[in-house]
Design a protein around this nucleic acid. Structure first.
Lengths: 337, 337
DNA sequence: CCAATTTGCGGGAATGTTCCCATCAATTGC
DNA sequence: GCAATTGATGGGAACATTCCCGCAAATTGG
């Protein structure tokens, strides 16, 4: 069963040529006679020859592979971003290796090892909610392998990042809630370790301040994005003597779960409590009631990040310019408010 | 900027050893003195040494990589299946390379070339709706590279497949519709080229026959799964003089779109027309009204397929046993019926 | 106590390809 | 007509690693 893989040497022998000439013919080098090239190409086709990228990469030190590390695959966010990234990558001749860290720091570290061992030309990373130490990512910098962060970025590293205007989006969403008459707006925030949590929280606070709504610590809950815990926090909010009339959630899955919990308590959305999410997941327009949310150009984020990475890979000089691309969000008002 | 990658030779020189010994120490070979191994391991750690999988794979002829080719990423189906597959794969020490064919035959062919060039140890495939010719997949058989199909399988090839009991699921769904009093049940089927379409259609027909409901060709529409066309077909059904009182869709996205179209016409679901889907996508329980659908163990499908593939890779003898794993579906009754 | 085995390590081929240098003929320039 | 250039090809090193073979020293067995 051990079948010999067809190599350029097989082709060379068959045609009485040297492997050099065959190699040149296959890579489209000019200094090879048209008839010779033709013969090589035909035989290659006939023998089902496929170039061995391992050998090529070993010698050229380029794998034409980019790694993508994302924390999860549950919401539509990361799959969508990946589609965007793959679109750009495959157009530029790059294969993608995708790893999900499952929101676990240890897994993320293991993933980076896989990427290094596989000699990826660059990586796209969105860190886990647990990640506090960035040594495993700094290795790439030391080795001169480009990194681009997207969505969940690492502030400690001076590399390109692709994010959205979380602060603005959050600010507009909360402003809208206030303008439509809501008085007590709670915020179910993400973990403080994530920059996006912080920015969205700041946007929330800024909007309240602008309209002179007093900040109430009781209404700001930060949680670890473990969706099962939403129930506890929302119930806690609903049990307050002065319960909120609106909840702004850090993302759509949280908002959706929030709606379920509110309804289970016999309250109505939006009549009793308005709910706003963030990201405009695919589901959000389809649920009952359709969710008001801050829409992000997710696919574009993936595209932009991949493009930034490939640009870095292409230019020999690793200038590590810390470009930060901020894409625009848009408030999508639906029936949940 | 051209930095030398740390190799076992660097370690060998530093410790006055041969590369053979370093290699043995790193791979955990027994015949190496504990102190020597310790020294090697420590230096490797200190130098940020990462084994070069390219060189290893080149010589061992094993990449510990499996390829996954799926038609799309839009519904939650394939991302979920991939999560399952990755779960099993990474546990077994395999990296996954994912390609989406975007429902295009040409892209699928290109994807298989990428897989071959990258020397994957095996592939998991779900074909596009366009795929009629399987030569690009048969190459893998010829080269002795294991293939496992899942969901969208190819009948012409004698390799393991993972599917669900489409016929049964469909049969039960339609039976349920009839038992709950529906008289004219339409079926929005998938393209005839896909086995799943055929089986679901057959289940539909069998259920009608069982209850002596006459088959009406007018109510069976086969389409290419291009979601934009659902509007046309559903409107066509609603315009029939004797319009259906239930629509059984080949999958959930189709069912969801069907509901939207029905409502846009001012009709109610389920009062005027019941709608049933297939797959129980993540969204389906959250939409309004929650969708009655045939639930598939999608993640298990991915897991099973990956396990089958890895089993094939591990056993030297390529016995190509054409195992067909049929997983069970379950009818989930919600408010859309 | 000497042969036999084990332990620990080094040398070198092999993996499939690219790329540089060399070769040799044919063509060009003056 | 002869040096210089061009065209087409061959030879071999290099890439980072594994794996087989060999060799010496140390340990074992009777």
């Amino acid at each position: 069963m051990k079948r010999h893989q067809v190599t350029i040497i097989d082709i060379a022998k068959e045609l009485n040529l040297s492997k050099s000439t065959v190699s040149r013919a296959l890579t489209g080098h000019k200094s090879v006679k048209p008839e010779t090239r033709q013969a090589v190409l035909e035989l290659a086709e006939k023998l089902d020859y496929q170039r061995n990228m391992l050998a090529i990469s070993l010698i050229t030190k380029k794998t034409n592979t980019i790694g993508i590390i994302v924390p999860e695959f549950k919401s539509s966010y990361f799959p969508t971003a990946i589609i965007g990234a793959q679109e750009v990558a495959s157009k530029a001749g790059y294969t993608t290796v995708i790893c999900q860290s499952d929101e676990s720091y240890e897994t993320e570290v293991a993933n980076t090892r896989v990427m290094l061992a596989n000699q990826v030309d660059g990586i796209l990373v969105s860190i886990t909610r647990e990640t506090r130490n960035y040594d495993h990512l700094k290795i790439f910098q030391r080795k001169g392998i480009p990194i681009v962060f997207f969505n969940r970025v690492c502030d400690e590293m001076d590399v390109p990042k692709v994010i959205v205007d979380d602060y603005d989006g959050s600010f507009r969403a909360v402003s809208y809630l206030i303008e439509s008459g809501r008085k007590r707006i709670a915020h179910l925030a993400g973990p403080a370790s994530l920059k996006i949590s912080e920015k969205r929280l700041n946007g929330y606070k800024a909007a309240l301040r602008k309209y002179n709504v007093p900040l109430d610590e009781e209404l700001m809950i930060s949680y670890d994005l473990n969706i099962d815990k939403v129930k506890i926090y929302v119930n806690h909010l609903l049990n307050l003597e002065n319960r909120p009339d609106a909840i702004f959630a850090v993302n759509d899955p949280t908002a959706i779960e929030t709606i379920q919990v509110i309804r289970k308590r016999g309250l109505r959305v939006p009549e009793d409590i308005a709910v706003v999410g963030f990201s405009n997941d695919f589901v959000s327009g389809l649920i009952d009631p359709p969710l008001t949310t801050v829409s992000q150009p997710v696919r574009d984020i993936g595209r932009t990040a991949a493009q930034l990475l490939i640009d870095q890979i292409s230019r020999e000089v690793a200038d590590w310019k810390s470009i930060i691309k901020v894409l625009k969000t848009e408030l999508v008002v639906r029936k949940s408010t």
